[in-house]
Design a protein around this nucleic acid. Structure first.
Length: 581
RNA sequence: GCACCCAUAGCUCAGCUGGAUAGAGCGUUGCCCUCCGAAGGCAAAGGUCGCACGUUCGAAUCGUGCUGGGUGCACCA
């Protein structure tokens, strides 16, 4: 159940009835009618802007509409009071009975409480991570991985049919570099001095690859020209790197549904077919690009290339799909890959990119727009930098990787749960500071701890109640006499629980998983507040000695809170803490 | 030179398809454990929402132009 959606449906139903009886003119659009919590709780439990939104198109005074609507809404059992305020707001007050029923819903729906059908089963493809298979994952990848995974969880919870996908960039020159670097490690494994020249990957992580190569080839590749071994080593080394990346992702709790390979697109005609599709629309032509203004490369010379007229779909300049030597640019297989996603029947595409790929957004959107005839929207989320610290000092890089901190380092130090939660405490387009000391601190300065602590307290209540002989199963709690929950502080808690489904909808529609993390923090704050009220007012404690019926109602409220925390953490991919140590 | 992102309290950040007196945490000040976990809670102080126009009944939110910071800009991936 989604109380806000229910009340909005009620408002729209009454507006429709007012149209039927002539109070309102025909043909009004109710799309902008909202039912929201008011900014100030003193105004009521919910507010609707219906009268203000409709006043102008209806040609009526907002207060007149509001008063007519208020009169109708008041007849519904769920509306205790409907007051017109300010310029035409309609403030609604709901009886305790309604809020108590929310608690019951949370208990009966359990892990499904808050699940929505906003996605209506539409198929969405979320592409994320897509790190080159040339080394272990580093911090820069972690945030993208977490955001993509949590977003996928969120969309699945909100009614989308989600495919998580990883695009392996195994087709380009960087894999040649990998192969050559691995070859040096292979020589090293055979007792020779490796020559890690400028431009090769120096990291220690290739040493096991060299050993594996020795295992497989013995000494047969030594002193052989590159032409003999390059192709094999490309495959061998990138396969090993991909295995490592999968392990890293697993360590972070991320699993993909589909791995797509760039290399696999070559030689199949898929790239040619995608380009032909664009060509058929007159979007491919031979031409010369202007040099970039302001910063002309010294070695710039005009060349005729095959270009994609991306400017026809919102880009700033046209983009090359083929180099002057006739080989494809990186962009060409990317076009083919996105064409493939369109052809697989996805209704929506989402790409999670690092911020350094910002320059690719417009051309990628242009390509998808052209390839799908505007049918498939592509949302690209740019994930900003993560800066690592330890006690305020910049964190040192990993020796093993050579130049960067690996995902492995991060997860080893902070743990997967903490890492995931922290990565979701910022909007994706804002840079994030990650301090190893701070994220492991047990205080309310640390949102992970704060939310987990609330859950631990809830479980503590359940344990104590059970020890006292109460049946605290969800089924039993759902049958509790919830009319006992009448204190304003308890109703406030229930109201926060009622907002969960609404928050899921908002977060899912905006592709903004960070909203879930913030909501959980607020929910935990509400709960800690209620808990401490028990110090001053014993009647607010969850366990009431000798009054089992009252205790059960209060425990039900705590457990309902726990249900939402668990559901929220599940979306973030974080394990709820049963107790704190 | 162009494009994209960011600018909200001393600091770090939220702020819903435009909504009422802009919210948290940290820090500062003062309170609350004979009582379900004080690893917590309550309260106070603190803001021309970078600047200027514009749209609107209504702008932190939308538009335009500036300022400051970040990122990226032919034949790389």
């Amino acid at each position: 159940m989604n109380l806000f959606a229910d009340i909005r449906a009620l408002v729209v139903a009454e507006l429709t009835a007012m149209t039927a009886d002539g109070t309102l003119p025909q043909g009004l659009d109710f799309a902008h009618v909202a039912v929201e919590p008011p900014r100030d709780a003193a105004h009521g439990d919910m507010a609707t802007n219906a009268a203000m939104v409709l006043a102008k198109p209806a040609g009526l005074a907002p207060r007149a509409i509001a008063e007519a609507l208020a009169a109708r809404l008041s007849k519904d059992a769920r509306i205790m009071a409907a007051d017109v305020a300010g310029p035409g707001f309609l403030n609604l007050r709901l009886p305790n009975l309604v809020w108590q029923s929310v608690v019951k819903s949370a208990l009966t729906d359990g892990a499904d409480y808050g699940r929505s059908n906003a996605g209506a089963g539409r198929k969405v493809n979320v592409e994320f991570v897509s790190a080159n298979p040339t080394g272990p994952m580093h911090v820069g990848h972690v945030r993208g991985a977490v955001v993509g995974d949590a977003l996928s969880n969120l969309l699945a919870f909100a009614g989308w049919h989600v495919t998580r996908e990883y695009y392996i960039n195994d087709g380009g020159a960087q894999v040649d570099v990998l192969a050559r670097s691995a070859y040096e490690r292979y020589r090293e494994a055979n007792g020779l001095e490796p020559e890690i020249r400028e431009g090769l990957y120096p990291g220690d992580y290739l040493i096991p690859v060299g050993a594996a190569l020795k295992e497989k080839y013995g000494t047969s590749l030594l002193n052989q020209p590159e032409s003999v071994w390059l192709a094999d080593l490309r495959d061998f080394a990138s396969a090993m790197m991909m295995q490592e990346i999968r392990n890293d992702l697993a360590q972070l709790g991320v699993s993909m549904d589909v791995y797509s390979s760039e290399k696999a697109l070559y030689g199949t005609g898929q790239i040619e077919a995608a380009i032909q599709t664009l060509r058929d629309q007159g979007l491919i032509y031979e031409g010369t690009l202007e040099p970039p203004k302001g910063k002309v490369p010294e070695d710039y010379e005009a060349r005729i290339q095959t270009l994609f007229r991306s400017t026809a779909h919102g880009d700033d300049v046209d983009r090359p799909v083929m180099k002057s030597d006739g080989s494809w640019t990186y962009f060409a297989p990317d076009i083919a890959y996105h064409f493939d996603k369109v052809q697989r029947g996805f209704d929506e595409l989402i790409d999670i990119f690092g911020a350094d790929h910002g320059g690719y957004v417009k051309r990628m959107k242009a390509a998808v727009s052209a390839l799908s005839g505007g049918r498939v929207p592509l949302d690209i989320k740019l994930v900003q930098l993560v800066k690592l610290y330890k006690n305020g000092e910049p964190f040192k890089m990993s020796k093993r990787a050579g130049t960067f901190v690996t995902l492995h380092d991060v997860v080893e130090q902070a743990g997967a749960d903490v890492t995931r939660f922290m990565m979701l405490t910022r909007k994706n387009d804002v840079a994030l500071d990650f301090d190893f000391a701070k994220v492991l601190e047990q205080s309310k300065d640390n949102p992970v701890f704060y939310v987990q602590y609330a859950n631990a307290r809830i479980n503590s209540v359940l344990r104590k109640a059970q020890a006292a002989g109460l049946d605290v199963s969800d089924a039993a709690l759902a049958q509790a006499d919830l009319t006992q929950l009448s204190h304003p502080a308890e109703i406030d808690m229930a109201q926060q629980i009622a907002e969960w489904p609404r928050e899921v909808d908002i977060a899912a529609k905006g592709n903004e998983p960070h909203r879930i993390a913030f909501f959980l923090y607020e929910l935990a704050s509400e709960f800690h507040g209620l808990w401490n009220r028990g110090h001053d007012d014993a009647s607010l404690r969850f366990l009431q000695e000798g009054k089992d019926a009252t205790s059960l109602a209060k425990i039900a409220l705590a457990r309902a809170t726990g249900v939402v925390i668990s559901a929220g953490l599940a979306i973030l991919g974080v394990t709820p803490a049963e107790e704190m140590r």
